[in-house]
Design a protein around this nucleic acid. Structure first.
Length: 571
RNA sequence: CCCCUCGUAGCUUAAUGGAUAAAGCAGGACUCUUCUAAGGUCUUGAUGGGGGUUCGAUUCCCUCCGAGGGGACCA
């Protein structure tokens, strides 16, 4: 009785919804659904619409429920029943077939060739010469790497670009500091800390002697004008820094296609600025500086040349974007850069529009990593948390835990487990957050290997691997033997993997993928906790369950792989 | 003063405008003769204030309060 009322309401609601959505689909879908037996009506409508609109049946069912609510049917109190019914339907017939499909291509499930031939440039990491990498770099590096992986899996040709901060006034400051207080031997012995020391000292001294600021600018101007001594110092600092960066990326297991810094575009800057002047796009500003007015974009003017003639970050980014578009003809250029630079990228986008570039920059911004006082961690005040300290603390802790939990393992195996777990934990801790949120840095949370964390996912993978290894060869599978709630929930979840990846790519997010994997692991843990798999006397069901587990393991592995996190067969 | 981001449980975070707002940590109670306890089970607890749009608002709009970041010679 109540079901008939629902169907009647769904029929009315569907008509209303169609009017809203797209009249083209109306006839085919109404035809399709009117042929169905009782009960399938709402489901077919939902599925039909879902397919045409590229949305999930649940969403459509909710929309239907909304339409019904609007028409205020008297006999129905909880119209959400339509959504629930679709879910129920989804969990029976449809599901087993889906598992059979996914099982066949479990190692490539989620991959796609849709974007074949398209290029995308992902710029991330951007460490600065003569500065150590700190937790701030960790976020762009790990996020950029994950997004690059995700785009690759969708078939894009990804150009992973590390745009090194190797040009700008800060090097003038560093050179000035070195000339004033630098000790050659000290820098040779331990370059980065020595250089950072100089940089920090310079900023402290500026407070007492403001004229030093000017000295730094002068040194940069000299560098840009080709001064021999400054060039030599700059090359030295850069070489030492790059060595250090390589070591860090090795630790993280991250690779780039290009490590090209701002200085690469140095030669383009003068012609660029004079061209912009000639075309009347740029104009003189206060004190002999050169600016581009962006009034029509509702933005403050962009400074592209300082009054002393030196270039700026923005000048180099204009040249760099122009170069990227011309040389690579990419579909998109992503910049994985923190929130604080929003204005910079808005200005760059506006200038790209004025200059009629084929594309603008796509600023994939992310929140800051804040100190425990919720303030920005600044290198120049010496408050940064160094990347290396973080990694070594994580590994140290992981080693202790491994020694405790796996006394049987060899030293080599222990080291490998500790490293994999520790790095996974750090990466996951950052990637599981929505990129827009600021992260309040917390050692305790970073180094917690329980709960919603990479070690939990790695642990689940290892458990599944262990079951599969013990089970041996899988014989005849009958997927119809699966029907328990837990089994169906897992399969339902597995189905969503490609959509999750697509969402990640579309919105440049990783937290949705992290959450997806956590939920999958959680469902699976609950499943094998209660269900004995290997000892099942029903041979077909045993095999079907092994297939289910094997599929889950594959997806955990590929999903974590996209996040840049490795798994181990034993942990 | 202007712009941007944000405000959800004690803490840290989820939620294309949809179903009973979801987790982890912390707190309380259980659980290792059975495929790895980095696990599983139960439990306490939340949308800054006020309006508006909507069948329906954590989400969109307005306003107030609060936090962080940015605003021409840093990157």
């Amino acid at each position: 009785m109540i079901k008939e009322v629902i169907i009647g309401s769904v029929r009315r609601a569907t008509t209303n919804l169609f009017k809203k959505i797209n009249s083209e689909f109306q006839e085919t879908l109404i035809e399709k659904s009117s042929n169905s037996q009782f009960g399938d009506y709402a489901v077919n409508v939902a599925f039909g619409l879902a397919k045409e609109l590229g949305k999930s049946p649940q969403i459509i069912a909710q929309a239907l429920a909304g339409e019904i609510n609007k028409s205020k049917p008297e006999k129905i109190e909880r119209v959400e029943a339509v959504g629930g019914y679709v879910n129920f339907f989804l969990s029976v017939g449809f599901i087993r077939n889906q598992l059979a499909e996914i099982y066949k291509k479990r190692d490539s499930f989620g991959r796609s060739n849709l974007a074949k031939g398209k290029k995308i440039i992902v710029e991330y990491s951007q460490p600065n010469i003569a500065k150590p990498m700190h937790v701030g770099h960790l976020r762009t590096t790990i996020l950029g790497d994950a997004l690059a992986n995700i785009y690759e899996t969708l078939g894009y040709k990804v150009i992973r670009w590390n745009y090194i901060g190797d040009w700008g006034t800060q090097f003038g400051k560093l050179i000035a500091a070195y000339k004033l207080w630098g000790d050659k031997k000290e820098v040779e012995r331990d370059p980065i800390p020595a250089l950072v020391g100089l940089y920090v000292k310079f900023h402290e001294e500026i407070k007492k002697h403001p004229e030093l600021d000017h000295r730094g600018q002068e040194e940069f101007k000299k560098l840009e004008d080709g001064d021999k001594e400054n060039q030599k110092l700059w090359r030295w600092f850069k070489k030492e820094s790059l060595k250090e960066f390589e070591r860090m990326y090795g630790l993280l297991g991250i690779k780039f296609d290009l490590t090209t810094g701002e200085s690469f575009f140095e030669g383009d800057l003068r012609p660029l600025v004079s061209d912009l002047m000639k075309r009347g796009i740029a104009e003189p500003g206060e004190g002999g500086a050169i600016i581009i007015k962006l009034d029509r974009f509702d933005l403050p003017p962009a400074l592209i040349r300082k009054s002393d003639g030196a270039s700026l970050y923005l000048t180099r980014d204009i040249a760099s974007l122009k170069y990227r578009i011309k040389k690579y003809e990419p579909e998109k250029v992503l910049y994985i850069v923190d929130n604080g630079q929003s204005l910079h990228f808005q200005q760059l986008a506006a200038i790209a529009e004025i200059l009629e570039f084929k594309l603008g920059p796509e600023h994939v911004r992310y929140g800051l990593i804040l100190g425990e006082n919720k303030k920005k961690l600044a290198t120049r005040e010496g408050r940064a948390i160094l990347f290396e300290d973080l990694v070594s603390q994580a590994i140290e802790l992981a080693e202790k835990i491994v020694a405790d939990k796996r006394p049987d393992a060899s030293e080599k195996e222990k080291t490998e487990i500790a490293r994999t777990v520790a790095l996974g934990a750090l990466k996951y801790e950052i990637l599981k957050e929505h990129r827009n949120s600021d992260i309040v840095f917390d050692w305790k949370r970073m180094l917690d290997f329980r709960g919603n964390s990479a070690p939990y996912l790695q642990y689940t993978y290892a458990r599944l691997s262990s079951i599969l290894a013990r089970a041996g060869r899988v014989g005849r599978i009958d997927f119809n033997t699966l029907g328990e709630v837990m089994e169906l929930s897992i399969i339902k979840h597995l189905i969503n993997f490609p959509d999750t990846i697509a969402d990640s790519a579309k919105m440049y997010l990783t937290n949705n993928l992290a959450l997806y994997l956590y939920e999958l692991a959680n469902l699976t843990n609950r499943f094998y906790e209660k269900t004995s798999i290997i000892k099942d006397e029903n041979e077909s069901r045993r095999n079907a369950r092994l297939a289910l587990i094997s599929t889950t393991a594959s997806i955990l592995k590929s999903g974590l792989g996209l996040l840049g996190i490795s798994v181990l067969e034993k942990i």
